[in-house]
Design a protein around this nucleic acid. Structure first.
Lengths: 129, 129
DNA sequence: GTCGTGGATCGAAAAACGTCAACATAGAAG
DNA sequence: CTTCTATGTTGACGTTTTTCGATCCACGAC
């Protein structure tokens, strides 16, 4: 199931060095390559249906949501939901696994955190709990 | 200059109550209205040129950048830059003012912070400096 | 006033996007 | 095997977006 189209890794999830790992918009101008990668992730968030899908998945207590729960929550067709889920997955925001008849999706919080870090102004310090 | 098309206020910049002010993606599913407003702001970030423009403006020490500095930094035409700046302004991410011959843009960090808060997973606590 | 420059606006063309109906695929149950 | 259900994929269509050249407006200089 995880072999469709390859997932983005533009945010440097694996090899974070020091500062090259996560650009911050308020710190320095993005170069074209960083901007292109980040833009694709933000673009994935730039649709109301995808935002609601992501929030339904990311806010789920158990961490996983079956597609059969997502589809009836919208007024668009099932192929459209499937298409949006694919885009969210290609953006590295969610992942999925087939278990029997059903497919379950979960959020990838590392991507969300890194996106938040890109936007965060430097006036607030973060302390890990 | 600030009378073109009206600026978005979907993030509740003015009247933040308690939790209704700033939805958090990992806390609860977004309703359709919240998602529509947030999607428009994220869509504004979903373009490489706009991301670079925003980072050039937001990272400027003095806080202001003249359009005459932004335009030659890209390989697209001046009307295109003007168009992207307009979209960023309609998203509430930047604002501008004409001063004599030139127009200066600056970032609106409150919008950036609120977007970051929407994405932030609950596992990290923030402490204001 | 006229002229020149910085920047926004106006169409228009090409590309990308969102959506659907139709079809394909994977697994469960007979 | 066949059949049924849950999802993903394909191809097409209408809409939106991105980009440009041409034009217009605001301002300073003269």
């Amino acid at each position: 199931m995880s072999k469709q189209t390859q997932t983005l890794t533009v945010l440097g999830q694996d090899d974070q060095d020091d500062a090259a790992c996560c650009p911050v918009i308020t710190a320095a101008p993005l170069d074209a390559e960083q901007a292109a990668g980040l833009a694709q992730v933000f673009k994935a968030l730039g649709d109301p249906v995808r935002l609601r899908l992501l929030s339904m998945i990311a806010s789920r207590e158990g961490g996983e949501v079956c597609v059969c729960e997502l589809t009836p929550a919208f007024e668009v067709s099932q192929p459209t939901i499937s298409h949006h889920l694919k885009l969210l997955r290609q953006a590295g925001l969610i992942d999925c696994e087939r278990r029997g008849t059903w497919v379950y999706y979960w959020a990838l919080p590392a991507t969300l955190d890194r996106l938040a870090a890109v936007l965060r102004a430097p006036q607030a310090a973060t302390v890990s709990a």
